[in-house]
Nucleic acid binder design. Structure first.
Length: 497
RNA sequence: GCCCUCAUCGUCUAGGGGACUAGGACGUAGGCCUUUCAAGCCUAAAACCGGAGUUCGAAUCUCCGUGAGGGCACCA
């Protein structure tokens, strides 16, 4: 069987990380089997359509490296790939169902339906359309038409029996047919609902496997009956578990943008991952680990390495969350593998966005010292800030003392360092390094330079985590280094030292 | 109210009747190294939701609880 799978988002906005995971699993499966990955836009709810959303979704997929073989931009043999452009097809098949006794026209108004639903809730009954239009007589129908009511087409669901939904991840799921609603297939505006469009398109686009989120699982029995009514073969189902909020409360897809959860930043849109300085390789790697496992205790791998091992049956049915901290770790791993020039290039846009101008060579030069400290590309901004920002350092004398270098000694050490920086020639890495080491050894109570050098780095860069001291001093230059040391020495005298 | 799904360390997971003293990763704690931090290396703490049953033997199979999640639109 030729594998043909699809990712079918609604153009209601950006690409969501949960959607990206669904797309990724489809893509992985298609690529593994040498099949096709199709992008289809489900825009039959015109009220919710957002201009530019299709482009935004495609941008997200491209950034992640998920390329599609057929889609709205590139076309394909089964197009068009935008559902509103296929409206005639859905109408045709909706009418076919009516003619063949599998669907009927319903004239209920939205107000009527709302009232019905409220009554059901008040009576604590189960909620759903009560099929009041299912058995209208031709006379009743004619009367409704005459009154100018625009009908919808509803599916005539079976009233008894059971339906089995075979699912590759969950096994067979049995539904009592009383649970299947007479759902609307064609809306009064002439456009289809998800149910109809989905079944018609999957059939005519020759989709072999449906991989979609778990939230769709309860629509599967209805869809199976639609296939049956049409006399078509249903695709193979695989319902993916949902990606939850990091707290575990609720599905992440309910969130539309980044938010904070118990102090932790939670990224939601794919574009937010990009803007935060995460690499697409790391995001894809992390996403592949949500609900699936490479095996052999391997955590870091490329999609190409994952493909031969990727099996739908091995997908974990339990809902899970994206481990953002682990994503940061993975991102750091990927960053460490980058060459200084590649990294500088990747970091550049973030500096540009912050209005910081650097020449590429200088930037490349600091990358080796910085690389191992970066979790996200954007962190470079923080680590390099001391180079561009001469605002007074926000430090206290307490931060600049150590158990091996108490306050008085630290004060004295910084003064000695200032003298050294003022007079040393030449002011470069080779000279500065040994001289500061020596100074450090002479000022601490244990004769080790470490404590002093740590504090000196804090003084010079103003940051807990920053590039190493000597490199930082050289990058900063003699005059600016002296200015910072002056500031720091003043701290000791200012607050009662 | 009705229906569906799911359940292993804090998180992501491995395991699918005996190889389990339950493995790995992130995170956490401690140590080493070191030019502090970071990175790297080493060590540690940390889980089979509960109860019945099947079986010589259950994390693994069955049932019942419990908990969590999802669905029940002229939204997808």
């Amino acid at each position: 069987m030729t594998v043909r799978v699809r990712f079918a988002p609604s153009p209601t906005g950006y690409l969501h990380i949960g959607g990206a995971r669904t797309a990724l699993f489809n893509w992985l499966f298609a690529r593994k089997h040498g099949g096709e990955f199709i992008l289809r836009i489900e825009d039959t709810d015109q009220k919710r359509a957002v201009p530019g959303a299709i482009e935004a979704i495609m941008d997200g997929l491209r950034w992640l490296g998920l390329d599609w073989d057929e889609g709205p931009d590139i076309g394909g043999p089964y197009g068009p790939y935008i559902q509103t452009q296929r409206a005639d097809l859905y109408q045709q098949w909706a009418n076919w169902l009516v003619e063949h006794g599998h669907a009927y026209k319903c004239y209920c108004t939205p107000a009527e339906l709302t009232e019905m639903r409220q009554a059901q809730m008040a009576a604590k009954q189960s909620i759903g359309y009560d099929r009041r239009c299912r058995n209208l007589t031709p006379e009743q129908r004619a009367a409704k038409e005459k009154a100018g009511l625009k009908p919808v087409i509803r599916f005539q669901a079976p009233l008894e029996g059971e339906t089995i939904v075979p699912d590759l991840i969950r096994g067979d799921i049995t539904y009592n047919n009383t649970q299947i609603a007479d759902s609307v297939l064609l809306k009064s505006d002439g456009l289809p609902t998800y149910h109809l469009a989905n079944v018609v398109d999957d059939h005519f686009m020759a989709i072999s496997h449906i991989m979609r989120a778990d939230e769709w699982i309860n629509t599967a029995p209805l869809h199976i009956h639609l296939y049956k009514a049409f006399g078509w073969q249903p695709p193979i189902y695989a319902h993916l578990s949902l990606v939850m909020n990091p707290s575990g409360k609720g599905k992440l897809s309910k969130r539309t943008q980044a938010f904070t959860d118990s102090g932790q930043e939670v990224l939601v849109k794919v574009s937010e991952f990009q803007e935060a300085g995460l690499l697409p390789e790391a995001v894809v790697n992390s996403l592949t680990n949500v609900g699936w496992s490479f095996g052999d205790d391997v955590e870091k791998f490329t999609p190409e390495e994952a493909m031969p091992r990727f099996e739908l049956e091995a997908i974990n049915p339990a809902p899970s969350r994206l481990n953002y901290t682990k994503l940061d770790w993975l991102n750091g791993q990927y960053i460490q593998e980058m060459s200084p020039s590649a990294l500088a290039q990747a970091v550049k846009p973030f500096l540009d966005a912050a209005g910081i101008e650097v020449n590429p060579e200088a930037l490349t030069a600091v990358m080796p010292a910085m690389r191992v400290r970066l979790k996200r590309l954007k962190d470079a901004l923080l680590f390099l800030r001391f180079l561009f920002d001469d605002a007074p350092v926000e430090l206290s004398a307490e931060q600049l003392t150590h158990k091996k270098l108490l306050r008085e000694a630290a004060h004295e050490a910084f003064k000695q360092m200032r003298d050294l920086v003022r007079t040393i020639e030449p002011y470069d890495l080779e000279t500065l390094g040994p001289a500061l080491m020596k100074l450090g050894e002479s000022v601490t109570s244990n004769g080790k330079a470490g404590p002093f050098l740590g504090m000196a780095r804090l003084a010079v860069t103003g940051q807990e985590v920053s590039p190493p001291l000597f490199e930082s001093m050289v990058a900063l230059g003699r005059e600016r280094t002296l200015a910072r040391l002056d500031e720091v020495i003043a701290l000791f005298t200012a607050d009662g030292g």
